[in-house]
Design a protein around this nucleic acid. Structure first.
Length: 397
DNA sequence: TTTCCACCGAGGTGCCATGG
DNA sequence: CCATGGCACCTCGGTGGAAA
């Protein structure tokens, strides 16, 4: 392969095949997300059994956050399960049986850690993480090794032991392996659980995931700051990343289009999204793709207009509009209805035609997505959500 | 006041693995 | 063999502060 032919997504495929799904969520990101729900409902976690699986309690900030805030949140129980055998690299000393006493630690076995209370163990007047540490040292019953079965190793979310924990839980909170995201969500939905998990924003387009979003059974959370997510990786996992993705000084890997998915309610999804009128958009839009045009593009194969930026959504259009999937970051279900997606999903009733090779050589791509006529050519857009105002202000069309 | 440039926000893909 | 699914990333345009 010539250098200039090097596909831009080389590293993407490399990551896919390597299946290195080991990225640790930062404490501050977990805290910030949890607080978005508490702000909306201070009792979001009260009397609840919170289960953090697919996790590593030796490193996990999920465990640290919910253990440290156990009483403040009013938790009933905190369960954490870990996979078998990742080397210990961090500073946690909560599990003394793995501490060899000389600063080195043994390789841990898959483990469940169960906390049903956090109280002042050392008599210093406060109940905090130090007390959790003491409690775990004193109570071996709070830790249970996980054996798995013939099919799944100990700690795997599909193993019988972990499914039993899942059944007991009220809310599942974690950063699951992205490569198993579909399967993971299907399991949560099957068991009817509340959840708060991290995933790729592209998951919105997955055929298992999109129907949940459309039916308002799952939505995006409060999100990471500035649309970027930074996860840490253990030193032994450091590898080649694209330029600017990995920061050696902080040990953080930067991702775009990663977000929280949840079925817990929060305030932002009840905020009105400010829209402009169709005329204003055309007049003032800062967006090159729209500026200078007399009208919004209309898809050649969907009964909808193309709105390439969330900012450019008109308030006075009554029909279906195609918007980027990042629209969900600002979606208010009382304001908008999600009708479908232009990604091989043909259930919206808005698709008006199927192309054949007689129409264009790239008819497969055109049929997959919304197509726009540019001069004599048909061009496909990226996956668009097809939405409609529940109460358009004027109602043209 | 104009130019520059570093940073940041957010919309976007061609290709390969898979399975009927 | 060909139709289909989906990718823990990339690229580029916009912006705002610094420099001149």
């Amino acid at each position: 392969m010539r250098a200039e032919d090097e596909p831009m997504n080389r590293s993407l495929h490399a990551a896919k095949s390597a299946k290195q799904d080991e990225f640790y969520t930062q404490y501050g990101d977990i805290q910030k997300e949890a607080e978005a729900y508490l702000e909306f409902d201070a009792d979001t976690f009260r009397d609840k059994i919170v289960y953090c699986n697919c996790d590593d309690p030796f490193e996990s900030n999920f465990f640290k956050y919910f253990a440290a805030n156990f009483n403040k949140l009013g938790l009933k129980k905190l369960i954490t399960t870990s996979y078998d055998g990742s080397p210990i690299a961090g500073q946690m000393t909560l599990f003394p049986e793995y501490d060899e006493g000389n600063g080195k630690r043994q390789k841990p076995k898959a483990l469940a850690v169960i906390l049903d209370h956090v109280k002042d163990e050392d008599g210093d007047g406060a109940a905090n993480v130090t007390d959790v540490e003491i409690f775990l040292k004193r109570n071996k019953a709070a830790r249970r090794s996980l054996k798995g079965n013939d099919r799944y190793p100990g700690g795997d979310f599909r193993s019988p032991e972990c499914v039993a924990f899942l059944k007991e839980a009220d809310i599942v909170i974690t950063n699951p392996p992205f490569s198993l995201f579909r399967e993971y969500v299907v399991q949560l939905v099957e068991h009817g659980k509340k959840f708060l998990i991290i995933g790729s924003k592209n998951a919105i387009t997955y055929k298992e995931i999109f129907p949940l979003v459309k039916e308002n059974k799952m939505w995006v959370g409060a999100g990471f700051a500035k649309g970027n997510a930074y996860f840490s990786i253990p030193a032994y996992r450091v590898r080649e990343f694209a330029n600017g993705v990995y920061d050696k000084s902080t040990g953080l890997v930067k991702f775009r289009n990663v977000g929280w998915f949840t079925n817990l309610d929060h305030g932002r999804r009840h905020e009105e999204l400010k829209c402009m009128s169709m005329a204003d958009n055309l007049k003032f839009s800062k967006h090159k793709k729209i500026k200078g045009k007399r009208e919004y593009d209309r898809y050649d194969n969907y009964d909808a207009i193309e709105v390439p930026y969330t900012d450019a959504i008109p308030e006075d259009y009554k029909g279906a509009m195609g918007v980027p999937i990042s629209f969900l970051d600002r979606h208010n279900p009382e304001q908008f209805e999600i009708l479908g997606i232009t990604d091989r999903d043909n259930n919206s009733g808005l698709k008006t035609k199927e192309y054949s090779d007689a129409d264009a050589p790239n008819y497969g791509d055109l049929n997959r997505r919304g197509a726009i006529r540019v001069g004599s050519k048909l061009v496909s857009t990226y996956a668009r959500l097809l939405i409609r105002h529940r109460r358009p202000t004027k109602g043209k069309k």
